[in-house]
Design a protein around this nucleic acid. Structure first.
Lengths: 204, 204
DNA sequence: AGGGAAGCGGACATCGTGTCCACTTCCCTT
DNA sequence: AAGGGAAGTGGACACGATGTCCGCTTCCCT
């Protein structure tokens, strides 16, 4: 028996100075590596070497490349999530009293546009994080799915859960990257998605 | 100087008996391995061992796992391509004289349904073949894109090239597998896609 | 100042890839 | 039917990435 209550974990232990220093070095190095070239080709060894630390140190905090990319991506994704929940319409929900509630199709189009912006700035991070099927299991994806399913339901369409995943599919980072490499501009991508949004959720 | 014309390559050299035997063993073993478990986790070594041949022999014919999966998948995909070009409507183009030409939205819905069927039977092969961004560079994908772009154009929608890729995205094998694992039936998936097809290409 | 713990980093074992080359099997020619 | 050259075979090898382990260092609290 101890004098401490089993479930009362104390204050979060302060991060040691050397640990903080190394974390910053890792994130800076990883950001740089992801941005220059194929994110999937960046190895843990590359990152450790670029950060000037040992492999063991790197693995202590980050179990794999995806977790590093996610750490870099999180703040951006959270900012967008915040705007979806409380930002101005048509991205945010609007105000019933003020009569500024946007149609679901418009909110979806605005969401698409915001995601294209995010991808344009950070594809390399999204591709460095989980890709393929693993992507569908991330917290971020769950959020997007919830949001889109909500819009589908508002638009009175059947089976929002299934349709939401299908409406999110065109935002796959691999597709975005492929389109950009073929010379397609973000504007054209956004326009196509807007058409899709109006077709799927508009009162056709 | 030879007596043979430089560009006149003779008849295709017959495949040797041992080579044919081994090829059959490889394909059978690979099919079995892909079907049982995660296709991405199957290694060339696994296949060689399961086929009872050496690694060198395997690499002689197939440079990587994807090429084996593609060999297994090809005939199925070609059959579908044939039906798209010359099959009965609404999958095929129909007959102007007979007045059986289906609306683009209906053809897209039929294509979606056929692809879901193909995925339901062979996801493990599609996942064993190129996945992620590499998928967009395959001949098969080029064919689907051409087909869908044609339908988009027929429906009078702008930017068929971009919209075609976006309409193909919900057929990503990773998404299909994820949905199936969550207990969503092929019927629900097909229904969702049909709604999408009518929304995007219908005369809304 | 000192000591215990958190953090560090390089060495190591493991696994998958792809290549290479000495040997075997096939099948065409005579 | 036999012989010979080429196509095919398969195991050994080198390489690169992963993830773990543990003796040493650095930190920070007392």
């Amino acid at each position: 028996m101890t004098t401490e209550l089993p479930l009362a974990d104390g204050p979060p232990p302060r991060e040691r100075a050397d640990a903080a220093r190394n974390r910053a070095k890792v994130l800076a190095a990883a950001e740089r590596l992801f941005a220059s070239g194929d994110p999937a080709a960046v190895t843990m060894d590359d990152i450790a070497r670029a950060a000037g630390i040992g492999r063991g140190t790197l693995y202590r905090r980050y179990p794999d490349r995806a977790s590093i990319a996610r750490a870099l991506l999180d703040e951006h994704e959270r900012a967008l999530q915040e705007r979806l929940l409380r930002g101005d319409p048509p991205l945010g929900p609007g105000d019933t009293a003020a009569g500024t509630v946007p149609a679901p199709a418009e909110r979806l189009a605005a969401f698409y546009a915001a995601m294209v912006e995010l991808l344009e700035t950070h594809v390399h991070l999204v591709l460095g994080a989980e890709t393929g099927e693993a992507r569908y299991r991330t917290g971020a994806h769950a959020f997007w799915r919830l949001h889109v399913a909500h819009l589908v339901r508002e638009a009175g369409r059947p089976d929002p859960e299934v349709l939401a995943d299908q409406l999110l599919a065109p935002l796959a980072p691999e597709l975005f990257r492929h389109q950009r490499e073929r010379g397609i501009t973000p504007e054209r991508i956004t326009a196509g998605l807007a058409a899709l949004a109006r077709g799927a959720l508009g009162q056709g």
